[in-house]
Amino acid sequence: MTRLFARKNRGFTLIELMIVVAIIGILAAIAIPNFIKFQARSKQGEAKANLKAWFTTERAFLQEKDRYDPDIKVIGYAPERGNRYAYYFATTKTCEVRGAAGIDAAQTSAFCIEVDTGKFKGAVAQPPEKKPSSLTFVGSGEDPGNPGLTTAGCPGCNVSAYAAGNVDNEAPGVDTWFIATKDAQATAACGNADENMAVAGTPFMSNNDVDCDK
Rank of each mutant, 00 (worst) to 15 (best):
175 D>Q: 12
29 A>S: 14
133 S>M: 13
141 G>F: 05
48 K>V: 12
104 D>Q: 03
40 A>K: 00
90 A>P: 05
57 T>W: 01
171 A>W: 11
98 R>D: 04
107 Q>E: 09
68 Y>W: 03
106 A>E: 11
162 Y>S: 01
158 N>T: 07
4 L>I: 06
204 F>Q: 04
173 G>E: 02
42 S>N: 09
16 E>M: 12
103 I>E: 05
160 S>V: 03
53 A>P: 00
98 R>W: 14
97 V>S: 03
132 P>Y: 06
70 P>M: 09
119 K>M: 14
52 K>N: 03
40 A>W: 00
71 D>K: 02
105 A>V: 00
199 V>H: 04
30 I>W: 10
20 V>Y: 09
162 Y>W: 13
111 F>R: 00
193 A>D: 15
82 G>S: 12
100 A>T: 15
77 Y>E: 03
197 M>C: 05
131 K>H: 13
42 S>I: 09
131 K>P: 10
147 P>I: 03
97 V>N: 03
108 T>Q: 14
121 K>I: 15
138 V>W: 06
173 G>F: 01
160 S>T: 04
126 Q>G: 03
178 F>Q: 00
92 T>Y: 05
139 G>S: 06
52 K>T: 10
165 G>T: 08
13 T>R: 09
51 L>S: 01
51 L>R: 00
116 D>V: 02
73 K>A: 04
196 N>I: 07
58 E>R: 06
49 A>C: 04
189 A>N: 14
186 A>K: 00
133 S>T: 15
15 I>P: 00
77 Y>I: 00
198 A>D: 05
110 A>R: 01
211 D>V: 04
138 V>D: 08
18 M>K: 07
150 T>Y: 02
51 L>W: 01
26 I>W: 07
175 D>H: 08
101 A>I: 09
50 N>Y: 11
15 I>F: 10
139 G>P: 05
15 I>E: 08
29 A>V: 04
34 N>D: 08
26 I>G: 12
41 R>E: 15
106 A>K: 08
119 K>H: 13
138 V>A: 11
133 S>F: 10
93 K>Y: 09
60 A>E: 13
64 E>R: 08
149 L>C: 07
66 D>Y: 10
172 P>M: 14
10 R>I: 02
180 A>C: 13
136 T>M: 12
130 K>T: 09
